[in-house]
Design a protein around this nucleic acid. Structure first.
Lengths: 325, 325
DNA sequence: TTGAAAGCGCTAACAT
DNA sequence: ATGTTAGCGCTTTCAA
């Protein structure tokens, strides 16, 4: 490479990186050689030498979920603004896979890591963090480790949503959520209980159903709450997956059942009735986390913080239905 | 590291990589040292030496688009099955950004590249391909370069969808699509024209509108087609973004207008009427492309091929409405 | 079974 | 303005 241009190795390096101190004439000669020989810089070697990879990792649950797409995109935008690439992987809600992925990313020497936890113990990241890998957790808190966390106000959002149903006259309100080991699910359930308690309503066991969010289970849970002697008159759906299935089941019912869902859904406004939701801003979640990550990297070393983003109640009709007699 | 365990450098390497030829006793000593000193293998150096990175790149249009989420996830699954990580970036439909991203990925020495083209000239990838980077294009064909391509049958799908409308009595049918420079948009328009021609219908200019898919423009285009002397009685929407906006506009109309959309949409079955669509399988697109990529990598060197996946007409009501008088 | 030496492609530090 | 040297952390090769 250098030989072909008849210059020293370092000069080539200078040209490639646009560093100063090269005569226009030499530069041209080097450029020619680059073209002719088809030179392609090897960033692996560069990384090895410089210590920074200009890439960050994102471990999330499922890239195909409409909630994580925008989040991921927001992280990518911030990374791009900082000249970094994004490597991402899906944990599929499996703690082991989360760890495996996160450590693989660290072995690649990503500069930082944004993690949407599947597990509840992140001590395995301690050596990495000590070694300088910036780390931020999003959507759910880190487990057994002190780190930056960016969350939505799951508790407050759910509490507000359920209070909204109560304000519209409901007392028998069902809650269908994700597996209780998932932090967001637990928090939303807590919000549900709080709103009910605020209204002096004693919650019955059969009004609550936590578990996998696959359509079959959610359908069964919904149907059970709607049958029997004193069926619920309203349902609070714990996330977007649940909401979609509950909508399907409610559409088959003869009497109207009120519904408020956590997470916004596309076309929710066009259904009959429109679906009232507690919306969280997935993009803001991602953006905030990524910005925090790069601030860690900038050396503005700040103490780990817990940032909570507000949710927003969007009324569209389904949450304002009165209890059916 | 090696010093601490009192062994040679290579022995540590052997232990870390689980290579044979180490006494259990020595291995234990090395493991201890690893724990104590918090060793973390640096894959950058490994890559530099081995030549392969066990990672592939994915350049797509927008990770936040519900069409690309599942596609990306499918690519990731295949990569994972082959022990590779996925690095992905969004081109935002900007050819320059596509190129910048693709080349950045190549500089990182990804083993392969899956590209959803934004531009129509991919000669810039020739040196990379020659250097051994496996490359597959998805969703849209490569430009001015001979490479593997995995596509949906955009032409046939659109033709079938429009024929469906014609079969239900429509003759004045509008087509609203993406910018004509985008291959899928052009192909779908071609399918529209073919179906119309098959039926002996002379297409009028004002029935066709191609351009950006932002809500404002699509809304305007829809409203124009629906006004005037001989308004269209049916609309074929060129992709999921367009469909969503058209649904909104149609919901405001007093008379019913038939609609068939390209791409499936969540909750399309629950709207009134249900939305008839030409569905493509985004996950299959991604899976097929990624599998092809790894077959290139496996050395089963095959000649570049063009694979076309079928689409599926899903009737739900909106496409079966008769023309309103 | 183990180790020493060379080198992957690059850049930082120091000549010239 | 340009070149030389050393070394990033690992694996490959060959020798002990």
């Amino acid at each position: 490479m250098a030989a072909r241009a008849g210059v020293g190795l370092k000069t080539v390096s200078r040209v490639v990186n646009g560093e100063p101190g090269v005569t226009p004439d030499t530069e041209r000669r080097v450029q020619e050689a680059i073209e002719a020989l088809g030179f392609r810089r090897n960033d692996s070697a560069r990384v090895l030498r410089k210590g920074r990879t200009a890439s960050i990792g994102l471990v999330l649950e499922d890239l195909a979920d409409p909630f994580y797409g925008p989040l991921s995109r927001a992280v990518e935008e911030v990374a791009r603004a900082h000249g970094a690439l994004l490597i991402n992987g899906s944990s599929a809600e499996d703690p082991e896979r989360e760890q495996e992925l996160a450590l693989a990313l660290c072995a690649r020497r990503v500069d930082g890591l944004v993690v949407i936890p599947a597990g509840d113990d992140h001590r395995y990241l301690e050596p990495e963090i000590r070694a300088g890998v910036a780390t931020v957790f999003v959507d759910r808190p880190a487990g057994r480790i002190d780190a930056d966390v960016v969350l939505s106000d799951n508790y407050g959002g759910a509490r507000g949503g359920v209070a909204h149903l109560i304000a519209h006259g409901h007392r028998r309100i069902g809650f269908i959520g994700d597996m209780p080991r998932i932090h967001t699910a637990a928090e939303r359930l807590r919000g549900y209980r709080a709103a009910m308690e605020d209204a002096g309503i004693a919650v019955e066991e059969r009004w609550m159903s936590l578990g996998a969010t696959n359509p079959e289970r959610v359908r069964r849970a919904t149907e059970e709450m709607l049958s029997g002697a004193d069926p619920v008159t309203a349902i609070f759906a714990g996330n977007n997956r649940v909401t979609v299935t509950v909508i399907r089941v409610l559409a088959e019912q003869s009497r109207p059942v009120a519904l408020v869902g956590f997470d916004d859904i596309e076309l929710a406004d066009l259904l009959q009735p429109g679906v009232t939701v507690v919306a969280q801003d997935a993009a803001a979640l991602g953006r905030t986390a990524a910005e925090r990550l790069f601030r860690q990297l900038d050396g503005t070393l700040l103490a780990p913080e817990r940032i909570e983003l507000p949710t927003r109640l969007v009324t569209r009709g389904s949450g304002e239905l009165p209890p059916a007699v």
